[in-house]
Amino acid sequence: MSTTGDDVSLAGHDEEQIRLMEERCIVLDHDDRYLRDGSKKECHLMSNINDGLLHRAFSVFLFDPDSGKLLLQRRAKEKITFPDMWTNTCCSHPLAVRAELEEQEQIGVRRAAQRKLEHELGIPTSQVSLDAFQYLTRIHYLAPSDGMWGEHEIDYILFLTVPVTLAPSENEVCDTKWVTPSELKALMEELDPEAFTPWFKLIAARFLFPWWQQLLDRREGGKGKVDALSLKDLRDDEIHRML
């Protein structure tokens, strides 16, 4: 653990998570246009969020191709924002580097998602091709984590259906769970609402279950594998404002 000298905002946090706070996120206007880069720390301080600071993010929903189950992760206790909460498979930020700033067909976001699936869950990039991600829409939301930290993001939602091997990083993920739609609904009723991240609850309430049902309904031959790319006609480029 570190006291980080005079940096009271990071005092006592995990060294690796403090290091990640120096990553350069993509700062946006409300129409998802690049303005500049900003540190992950700067983008997640509520004092800056309250002044309107907004950044780009993504949320990956990975489904098993055979069963159609969704992979959930529980964020590690070491995480600075929203620790120990259940959420979708992988949630993070593209970085303000050339490869992840590229916007055509969300290629920069896809590269970031591929990178973070390996970092957080140990999924080899060889198992996740960039063209396997199905982009569906973007949401604009704001959510405080505690008095100091929070999120204010335009979040790209990506579905993925590939077989994977998992080797989660204990510094990022403390648990994983594969669930059916009914199992997820039961879990969300059983656990305290505060056990789930706010973006996951927003996506689940508005989009996830209808899309998931479409994914299951569109199985190959009616009973084969599920395929995220079968949902391409559901793609929506609008920014859904869910503040």
Results as ranks from 00 to 15, higher is better:
L215C: 06
G224K: 11
L215H: 07
R206F: 01
L208N: 06
I203A: 04
R218W: 07
D217G: 09
L229G: 10
D227L: 07
L208F: 14
L208M: 10
F209N: 03
V226P: 12
L208C: 07
L231E: 13
G224C: 12
R218A: 07
A228Q: 05
E220R: 10
G222I: 09
E220S: 14
L216I: 12
K201V: 05
F200D: 01
I203H: 08
R219V: 08
R206N: 11
A205P: 00
E220C: 03
L216E: 11
Q213S: 13
V226H: 11
A205S: 13
R219D: 08
Q213C: 00
L208V: 03
G224I: 10
W211N: 05
L231G: 13
D217K: 10
F200Q: 06
E220Y: 09
K225N: 14
L216P: 05
A204G: 02
Q214K: 15
G224W: 10
K223F: 09
K201C: 07
R219K: 14
K225V: 12
P210D: 03
V226E: 10
F209R: 04
L215G: 06
K201D: 10
A204S: 13
F207H: 13
F200V: 02
K201H: 02
G222E: 09
L216C: 06
L231H: 13
F200R: 00
R206C: 00
E220L: 10
L215E: 08
P210A: 04
K225Q: 15
D227T: 04
R206Q: 11
L216K: 04
V226M: 12
G224T: 11
R218M: 06
P210R: 04
S230A: 15
D227R: 12
L202H: 01
R206D: 12
D217P: 02
F200Y: 09
L215F: 06
L202Y: 03
F200M: 15
Q213H: 14
I203K: 00
W212I: 06
R219P: 03
Q214V: 05
S230K: 15
K201M: 11
K201G: 03
F207D: 05
D227P: 01
Q213N: 13
Q213Y: 09
R219F: 06
A228F: 06
A228Y: 05
V226D: 10
G221Q: 03
L231T: 12
R206K: 13
I203R: 00
